[in-house]
């Protein structure tokens, strides 16, 4: 009788834990990049140089990684209707810059930026089209 109870208890525990874990995975939100620390800290010029040299190798290194990139603000784009804010950082290369797409909640802090000022932006690298693109960005410094 006791042994039987123990087994039942064991089975219930396992079922409970798996359901709990399943539910946790199912409802888990994507990581908030703002709370993560950067895998790489570098200048826009260095990032673009790496991509210009060898895009495949650069993708292996930077893709999906959190990068804190330092550069001069070239352009600020605010979309009031959607709350979308994008900052383009100059890299010294006229053909390729770093485009940083911000979290919608960061709109207010992006508004305070001025063109030409030097800042550090943290975000997740998604690859290179014409520019290297970071998304889920926030202002680091």
């Amino acid at each position: 009788m006791k042994k039987w109870k123990k087994i039942l208890f064991g089975i219930l525990m396992v079922a409970f834990i798996t359901t709990g874990y399943g539910f946790y995975m199912y409802t888990k939100k994507p990581a908030d990049v703002r709370t993560l620390s950067a895998n790489y800290e570098l200048s826009t010029a260095a990032l673009i140089e790496d991509y210009n040299k060898d895009e495949t190798a650069a993708n292996v290194k930077y893709l999906d990684k959190v990068i804190a990139v330092k550069g001069k603000v070239k352009e600020i784009k605010l979309e009031q209707a959607t709350g979308q804010a994008t900052v383009v950082l100059d890299s010294g290369d006229p053909m390729a810059a770093v485009t940083c797409s911000f979290y919608n909640e960061e709109l207010a802090s992006v508004k305070k930026l001025t063109e030409g000022s030097e800042i550090v932006i943290k975000g997740k690298c998604t690859g290179k089209l014409m520019d290297v693109v970071l998304n889920k960005c926030s202002i680091e410094k």
């Binding site: 995975m25 199912y26 409802t27 888990k28 939100k29 994507p30 990581a31 893709l63 999906d64 797409s101 690298c125 998604t126 690859g127 290179k128 089209l129 014409m130 693109v133 998304n135 889920k136």
Partner: peptide
């Protein structure tokens, strides 16, 4: 990224697949 030429009608779009944002990590 989108670019088009109003003279010739050429139009191009490009997108980074990693750049899609979702509400769930899974």
């Amino acid at each position: 990224t989108c670019i088009f030429d109003a003279g010739t009608g050429d139009i191009q779009f490009a997108i980074l697949v990693k750049g899609f944002e979702f509400k769930s990590a899974l």
